[in-house]
C-alpha cells in the first residue's frame, strides 16, 4: 500500500470510529494564567528572576564580559568559537592567550572548549535561553563545545512560558535551553554534559 492509500484508510477509520459519538468533547475555554508561577515573579524585575532561576538549573547568568573571560581563563578553556557578528564587541576582553575562531569547522568539534552565539531571548520563570535559526549563527556551535555562552539582550527576557510561546514567531526552528545538557539514566544520578554543553552561561547585555 502507498502512503496515499494509508492516508485514506487511516482517515476513514478515524471517521468511522468517531461517527457513533453523539457529542464530541468541546475545547475548554481557559487562560494560560493558570500555569504561571505568579507568586515567584512578584514585582521583581525579569533579570533578577532570570539570574536566580538559571542558577537553580545549574546555569549561570553574567552581565560583565570581563567576568566571563576570567572564568574561561581560570578553567583553561582557551580555544573557542564566536559568532562573527559578536566578536568585534567581545574581542577587546579576550587576551592573546585565547584562540577564538569566527568560522566553525565541524571537523574540529573536539577542539572548541567554548562557543559564543547570540540568543533570541530568555525566559525568567524557568531560567531558559531561547535560540532560533535567525539569531544563532550555527546550531552546532551552541551545542558541541563544553561551554556554551549565549549573549542575550536584557530587554528580551520574557516573564514566563506563555509569553515565550506567544513570541515563537515565524522562525522554523526555535529551541529553549534550560541549563546544561543532562541525564539521570544511570541509577538516577545527575550527570551534566551528555551530548551538549556541560556548562551553560548567559551573558546578558
Amino acid at each position: 500500500m502507498s502512503s496515499a492509500d494509508d492516508r485514506e484508510s487511516i482517515l476513514s477509520r478515524v471517521r468511522g470510529a468517531l461517527a457513533p459519538l453523539h457529542e464530541r468533547a468541546a475545547m475548554p475555554d481557559y487562560t494560560t494564567e493558570i500555569s504561571v508561577m505568579r507568586a515567584m515573579m512578584g514585582s521583581r524585575d525579569a533579570l533578577t528572576v532570570f539570574t536566580e532561576r538559571i542558577a537553580l538549573v545549574n546555569g549561570l547568568a553574567l552581565t560583565d564580559p570581563a567576568a566571563l573571560v576570567a572564568r574561561l581563563r581560570e578553567n583553561q578553556w582557551l580555544c573557542g568559537y564566536c559568532d562573527p557578528a559578536l566578536w568585534p564587541s567581545l574581542a577587546p576582553y579576550f587576551g592573546a592567550d585565547f584562540k577564538v575562531d569566527t568560522a566553525y569547522d565541524r571537523k574540529r568539534v573536539d577542539d572548541y572548549a567554548f562557543g559564543i552565539t547570540r540568543a533570541a531571548a530568555a525566559i525568567a520563570e524557568t531560567g531558559t535561553i531561547v535560540l532560533n535559526d535567525a539569531t544563532t549563527s550555527r546550531r552546532l556551535a551552541a551545542l558541541t563545545p563544553w561551554v556554551h555562552i549565549a549573549v542575550v539582550e536584557r530587554a528580551r527576557i520574557f516573564a514566563d512560558l506563555p509569553e515565550a510561546v506567544a513570541a515563537l514567531g515565524p522562525d522554523s526552528n526555535v529551541i529553549w535551553v534550560t541549563g546544561p545538557s543532562k541525564t539521570a539514566d544511570v541509577e538516577g544520578i545527575l550527570i551534566e554534559g551528555v551530548h551538549g554543553p556541560g556548562i551553560q552561561i548567559a551573558l546578558v547585555v
Binding site: 538549573v57 566553525y104 520563570e125 524557568t126 531558559t128 535559526d133 535567525a134 544563532t136 549563527s137 550555527r138 546550531r139 552546532l140 512560558l161 515563537l168 522562525d171 522554523s172 526552528n173 526555535v174 529551541i175 529553549w176 535551553v177 534550560t178 541549563g179 546544561p180 545538557s181 543532562k182 539521570a184 551538549g196
Partner: peptide, 24 residues
Amino acid sequence: GTAQELTVYTEFISGPKSPTQPDG
C-alpha cells in the same frame, strides 16, 4: 515525567532549517 520545571531542551520545529542557517 522527571520532576523538572522544564526539560533542558524544548525544540519547536516547523520545517526544514532556515536558508540562512548553515546547520540542520
